[in-house]
């Protein structure tokens, strides 16, 4: 295991009476993608902001980003970080290439170098034909890719992505995932927040599930699945016959989780779920492999909390 490039120990962030981040610790290895997964209000964005010095952590904890502390070395960190914020914030008055040129100035890049980097990035993110398009003419997916291109201008060592594909269609999402994997292979370390389980599964080497500001579990996607959830799920959307099934002896090695109008049966052995399915054959059911979403919902609860 190489030395971690990001180390956060016991960090806290409080806004008034709300403990947004609560004694959070984690370490990130170089050239990996580290994902924060959690419901809205879990403290993911607050954590990211403390890392790139957009927010000051409360006294007590420590953060080390490639040898720098964001509380005291803001500029050094911002210079080698690229940030893709949750909301697009491009200059609507300018076109694609003008937006990128303007941003390159913040890094004091010389114009020639900036232009060649911009060409390279527009090609990489498949925006080459949109060079002179106005921002309002771009689709949501194009704006998102442009924001990613902007974050990559200064060849960041660390790329911070706050919900990079929220609200995008599947094609664009897959394209962005593909590009991010290429960047990781090329040596970029990434921090990602998302509430898409599939995104976390596709991109992250390590996932930290946050809930109410706390680290509630952490591991590789496979570890989380293996350690925290049964292999298979049977979902039943018509709870009419549940009482008969629940009382039956079929449920010896099956875990039952009732919430709202859906009942879920979890088991490592698909045959025991098949037996349950047979018993309720005329009802609507769905038998599938368990996924990160099941882990996530088990960990963070199925009902909404006051921060969502």
């Amino acid at each position: 295991m190489p030395n971690p490039v990001i180390q956060a120990h016991h960090i806290n962030k409080r806004f008034g009476s709300l403990q947004a981040v609560d004694d959070l610790s984690f370490e990130v290895s170089p050239n990996t993608c580290f994902g924060f997964l959690g419901p809205n209000g879990a403290g993911k964005t607050s954590t990211m902001k403390m890392i790139y010095a957009r927010s000051k952590r409360d006294d007590g904890g420590t953060i080390d980003i490639f040898g720098h502390d964001p509380n005291t070395e803001e500029l050094a960190i911002k210079y080698f970080c690229g940030v893709v914020p949750q909301e697009d914030n491009l200059d609507e008055e300018l076109n694609v290439i003008q937006n990128l040129r303007l941003f390159a100035r913040f890094y004091d890049m010389d114009a020639k170098k900036a232009d060649s980097r911009i060409d390279e990035l527009l090609g990489f993110l498949e925006l080459g034909e949109k060079r002179t398009a106005l921002i309002r003419e771009l689709s949501g997916g194009m704006k998102r890719r442009l924001v990613i291109a902007r974050a990559l201008l200064n060849e960041p060592k660390l790329l911070i992505l706050d919900e990079p594909t929220t609200g995008l269609d599947p094609q664009v999402r897959h394209l962005i995932w593909d590009k991010l994997r290429q960047l990781k292979r090329a040596g970029t370390t990434m921090l990602l927040t998302t509430h898409y389980m599939e995104e976390a599964f596709q991109l992250c080497d390590t996932i930290l599930i946050m809930h109410k500001g706390r680290n509630i579990m952490q591991g590789t996607p496979k570890e989380l699945l293996a350690e925290h959830i049964e292999d298979y799920v049977l979902e039943l959307t018509d709870p009419g016959k549940i009482d008969e099934v629940v009382q039956s002896a079929l449920l010896a090695d099956v875990r039952v989780d009732e919430s709202g109008q859906i009942v879920r049966f979890y088991a490592d052995d698909i045959d025991s779920l098949k037996a349950v399915a047979d018993a309720i054959q005329d009802s609507q059911y769905y038998l599938r492999q368990s996924n990160l979403e099941d882990v996530f919902l088990k960990a963070t609860g199925r009902t909404l909390n006051d921060r969502q």
């Binding site: 803001e74 911002k78 909301e87 914030n89 200059d91 609507e92 913040f106």
Partner: peptide
């Protein structure tokens, strides 16, 4: 509204 500062503050600008 435009969140311009969010963009600028991600660059090396305090």
């Amino acid at each position: 509204f435009q969140k311009t500062y969010d963009g600028m503050l991600a660059a090396p600008i305090t």
